[in-house]
Structures are given as C-alpha cells and as structure tokens.
Simulated assay, not measured.
Amino acid sequence: MATMGDVARLAGVSVSTVSHVLNETRKVNATTRERVESAIAETGYRRNVVARSLAAGRTHTIGLSISALTNPYFGSLVHAIEERLSAAGLVMFLGDSHDDPAAERRVVDSLLDRQVDGIIVAPSADAERKTIPTIQANGTPFVLIDRGVEIPCDQVAPENVESAARLTEHLLDLGHRRIAVVRGLAGITSSTERVDGFFRAMADRGLAIDPRHVLDGHSRVDDAEHAVREVLSAPDRPTAIVSLNNSMTIGTVKAARALGLDIPSDVALVSYDDFEWSDLFEPRLTAAGQDVGTMGRAAVDMLLERIDGYDGPARRVQVPTSFHHRNSCGC
C-alpha cells in the first residue's frame, strides 16, 4: 500500500506539501498541485481517514438501527436521514433490527464497536430495558425515531393518538358502528398509541368495542391478511376497518379481494400511513400521512446538537400527520 512518502518522492516534493494538497491546509501553486495529484493517482495512495478521525476524536459517521427496511415507510425515513447527514458531511452505517430485540442489540453493538459519533434508533419492543442502557453506558449520543420510550431521552415520532382517532371518527360520521381495528406489533409505542386513539374515538361516541373486531396484524402483511379474512368471513362482519400501518393495510386489501368483497361498497377502509401511490390504485386510500422528511431531519439535527456538546434536558418532538381524504372510506 502506497504511503504519503511514496507520493512525495514521485512528485519531487516534501511530505508536508502532499499533506497540504490533500487537506487544503495551505495554498499550493497549480504546477506543484498537479504533480502531487498525478503522483497520488499513479501510486494509488489513499488517506487513512479512520486513523485521522480517531486522532481528532470524531469518526464523522452516524449509526442507524431501524426495522423492516422493505417497508416503504421506513425506506423513506432512511432516505430523509441519509440526505440530512450527507449535507452535514457525515456517512451513515445502517443496520436492520427486524423488530427483534436480539438483532437490535447486535446492530447497536456493531455500531458502537465502529465508534460512530452518534446513533439514531427506531427502538424494538425491548429497547428500553437492553439497547438504550447499552448506548447510555457507552456515552454515545443518540436519538430515538418513530417510536418512543418512557425513560428521558431525545425522541422524534409522529402524532399517533389524535390521528388514529380522526380516522375512526370519520368512519363514525359516515354511520359505521361495527368497526374493526388492525393493530400493530405489541410493545411498540406507536402501536399502543394508535389503538388508543381508536378506542378513544369509539368511547367518545358511547360505543362498545366487540373484542372480535380488535385484530392483531403484528405490523405484517400476512398476519393482517389472515386476521382480516377471518373477521370478514363472519356473518356479522364489520362494515369498516381501521388499519394502523401500511403493511397491514396491504394485508387488509388482499383479504377483502380474496373473499370477493369490494372496498368500499362491502367494507370501508381507512389507513394510518399513506403510500406514495395511495391515490393511484382503486380504492384510493383515505389515510393519515406521516411527514417522514420532517422526522428524519429533526432527528439528525437533534443528534448533531448532542454531538456538538448540547447537554440540556431530553426533548420529545411529535410531528403532526396529514389527513388524505380519498374514496376507500366510501365517501
């Protein structure tokens, strides 16, 4: 492997001149710069950025532990985070936790081993007990995104309760009373908050909730499809469904189609999570859309403030959703 000394000898300059060209720490005349750059290309020399960064106390890298990268929502969130980090001159290391506490712990341990300057985590159900204490013990700045925890730390998440309540209220305003809800992965705050919004809206209208209409979709397509097929096959099937994430919405639509039911004529549907293509297919989805761009940028900005020395109290940001009124609700 070529060294800076090899570059200097080939270019006929001092090692310090090569350093000035590489780091732009001093003006070097154009002829000399061209010789140095030509020597760098000829020798194949590459700077040891890691060694330099560690010597300076920074690696200029950020870790991201997030789940379900095949989910379009999380893919968009990753894009928003990476875009903000890139603008700040930082590189992102990405690990998929698969919403599994053990996998999440391995991802976080790997990021800490790489001495990242900070970590953004979409926490699993057990993160409060295992993953977060590990990061805190290491002293690495971190921010939670999408899901929250009860312990004080920086967190950025969408507004869940009011958004789910509004979707449910819309169906109630249309006259529906037998409404099913497809809830997400247990132990995740976003799942809990969204189903709480559904329960609140029903209670505010004085309506009892049929336990058979509270469906466990586990935030997955197949589980939601199975649960919805079962409830829609019953003689007193619900007339409307509130699906609380986009994967479960896909499962819900698949279940209705498999049974030959039309949305919204046979069963109305509203969804928490908007798709980029929500108004391009039939039925066009009435949905609560999350502002992933704002969430991603806010998480990065909060993390960079911590890295730069901010030691104020923990902050929690809730990003409002937007209501997209289309025709899957039957309007």
Rank of each mutant, 00 (worst) to 15 (best):
V214A: 01
D173H: 12
C153R: 08
C153L: 12
A157W: 13
M202N: 00
N160P: 06
Q155V: 09
L185F: 11
G197D: 05
D210E: 12
T168L: 05
A180G: 02
G197R: 00
F199R: 09
H213P: 01
G175F: 14
R194V: 03
H213W: 12
T168Q: 06
S163Y: 06
I179L: 02
P152D: 11
L207H: 07
G187R: 02
D154P: 12
A164Q: 10
A157I: 08
V156K: 06
S163L: 02
T192I: 14
Q155H: 13
H176C: 09
E193Q: 10
D204L: 03
S190V: 01
E162H: 10
A157M: 15
G206S: 07
L215G: 01
F199A: 03
L167W: 05
H170E: 11
R178A: 09
D154C: 12
S191P: 07
A157V: 11
P211N: 11
T168E: 03
D204M: 13
R166H: 13
V214D: 01
L167T: 00
E159I: 15
P211M: 09
S191F: 04
A186F: 03
Q155P: 08
A186W: 02
G175N: 12
G184I: 02
P152K: 07
G187E: 05
E159F: 09
V195L: 14
H176E: 00
R194P: 06
H170W: 05
A165Y: 01
T192W: 14
R205I: 11
H170C: 06
C153N: 14
F198K: 02
E193C: 11
S163W: 10
